[in-house]
């Protein structure tokens, strides 16, 4: 019984090779809003599944299997981060980066975190990813596709949209004051030293990936058709969401890291 729960959770909180299903599910959701919803909801379902079907399935496994599971988790994380480096399309990038990050929730589970802690961690990663899906949809409406690197200098022609994309992308790669950073700190806190180096490698790759992403988005000289920027309403909505998101990071950081 635990195995079924475990496998289902491994789809929803992606672990390689079942993460492939997760990515397919997200990728095939209808439209940008559908994808955003999917990436918000599915991991939460995974958390619910894990915690509310009796005792924690993972902890029922023998220790050696647990260790293998966690190594698989780390491998998934680094593997998807690596794939994200060469991804150019915004929704694909955010999907892969989110997979990379959501996997780490298993580390929290293995170390006996509370359900709301894990749920918040998962939210901290999937919210920016969802936002990125939405922005990708808007960019696609204007440009035909959300593929970066073809046209440089989008910051000059679509300043509001570029700003929102940038902030969401930074939120996804655990930039400080966004909650994902503190969540990652929590993961670091609960691990022992031997497990740290894959996480450091992960941080390095995330940083590199974010750098390339932003470079393709922001810099260069724009040479295409003039485009209409986001409306004021949507910009404010997005900014407010991000602001409260960052604020929550500051508030909950104490709770998570115990400072």
């Amino acid at each position: 019984m635990e195995w079924i729960v475990l496998l289902l959770a491994a789809v929803l909180l992606p672990v390689f090779p079942l993460s492939w299903i997760f990515n397919r599910l997200i990728g095939s959701a209808p439209g940008p809003w559908g994808r955003a919803l999917a990436i918000l909801v599915l991991p939460q379902l995974g958390v619910l599944l894990l915690y509310h079907t009796g005792p924690l399935a993972l902890l029922l496994l023998p220790l050696s299997l647990q260790r293998i599971w966690l190594m698989l988790v780390l491998f998934t994380s680094v593997f998807y981060a690596f794939r994200a480096v060469s991804a150019r399309e915004i929704s694909i990038w955010s999907r892969l980066m989110a997979s990379s990050g959501l996997t780490l929730s298993w580390l929290l589970v293995a170390n006996g975190a509370q359900v709301h802690s894990v749920a918040l961690f998962v939210l901290a990663l999937s919210l920016p990813a969802a936002l990125l899906m939405i922005w990708a949809g808007m960019l696609s409406d204007r440009m035909g596709g959300a593929y970066l690197g073809l046209q440089g200098g989008l910051a000059t022609v679509l300043p509001r949209l570029s700003a929102l994309i940038t902030l969401s992308a930074l939120a996804l790669v655990a930039t400080p004051i966004f909650p994902s950073f503190f969540g990652l700190l929590q993961v670091f806190h609960r691990l022992d030293l031997a497990w740290l180096w894959p996480l450091l490698l992960l941080l390095l790759i995330w940083g590199w990936s974010a750098g390339r992403f932003l470079q393709d988005l922001l810099f260069g000289i724009y040479r295409g058709e003039p485009m209409v920027d986001l409306g004021l309403g949507i910009t404010w909505a997005g900014a407010v969401v991000l602001f409260f998101f960052a604020l929550s990071g500051l508030i909950w950081s104490g709770a998570w890291t115990g400072i």
């Binding site: 696609s140 596709g145 959300a146 073809l150 046209q151």
Partner: peptide, 10 residues
């Protein structure tokens, strides 16, 4: 070359 239509790029 960067001239592709963005919707087809992927």
């Amino acid at each position: 070359g960067g001239t592709i239509m963005p919707g087809w790029a992927q």
